[in-house]
């Protein structure tokens, strides 16, 4: 099938689904429902497009929609600090890293195989949907169905939580160590390859 036609069919179907979802959200929860449906559509639609697109660059940009949608969901959950962290780190950091990876490796437009994509979507989708339906039918969440009140300033709350003596000081320090080690390790791995190219070679 022609690629353009494929794209049209896919995006047409996607747009239809998104519209239906937005309508359902509006009907279910008014303005808040619409906002939720918008962000959920960004999240899920973005990842669907990411899987669908042939070119890695496009996929990476579609992933941006997913990350932003998730950030939006965090805002709806009144966790604005995490939402900002999400945008800063995922969109600003990780996505840029992935784009670097894209730029440093050759493009391959023949790599996507539609049968694989469809089969994966159907199989995994069926599995997850089945589990979800079963869980929804049987699970009794031990939590109330409305959001709890939160402090005025998320960032202050989390910052104090980090540094309080009975708080998260040790995990905080651990995270710092992990980040440092990962950075050093990444630099080391990326650097070694050049050492190997040298005629002398490094110590194995």
């Amino acid at each position: 099938m022609d690629h353009t036609l494929q794209q049209r069919i896919f995006y047409g179907a996607l747009a239809l689904l998104v519209l239906v979802g937005l309508g359902a959200g509006l009907a279910a929860g008014g303005g808040a429902g619409l906002a939720f449906a918008l962000f959920a559509a960004m999240t899920i639609g973005g990842s669907l497009m990411c899987i669908w697109e042939r070119s890695v660059v496009r996929s990476a940009f579609c992933l941006m929609a997913t990350f932003t949608g998730v950030a939006g969901l965090f805002i709806l959950l009144e966790s604005d600090f995490i939402a900002m962290a999400q945008i800063l780190i995922y969109v600003g950091g990780i996505l840029v890293l992935i784009l670097f990876g894209v730029m440093l490796t050759p493009p391959d437009l023949t790599e996507r195989q539609l049968p694989r994509v469809f089969a994966g979507l159907i199989l995994v989708g069926a599995g997850v949907a089945w589990v979800a339906v079963k869980v929804a039918a049987t699970a009794r969440w031990a939590v109330p169905d409305e959001m709890q009140p939160t402090a005025e300033s998320n960032a202050r709350e989390i910052g104090v939580g980090f540094l309080r003596a009975d708080g998260y000081v040790v995990p905080f320090e651990l995270a710092a160590v992990v980040l440092t080690v990962a950075l050093v390790g990444a630099v080391y791995i990326a650097r070694r390859k050049r050492a190997d190219l040298e005629p002398q070679g490094g110590e194995s």
């Binding site: 989390i158 992990v178 980040l179 990962a182 950075l183 990444a186 070694r192």
Partner: peptide, 24 residues
């Protein structure tokens, strides 16, 4: 939320290392 923050931190670390591995 603390878990979420640590997940984000670890994801950043993982992305850096993974990219280095991909290039290698």
């Amino acid at each position: 939320r603390m878990f979420a923050i640590f997940t984000i931190i670890l994801a950043a670390a993982e992305a850096a290392v993974a990219l280095a591995i991909v290039l290698n």
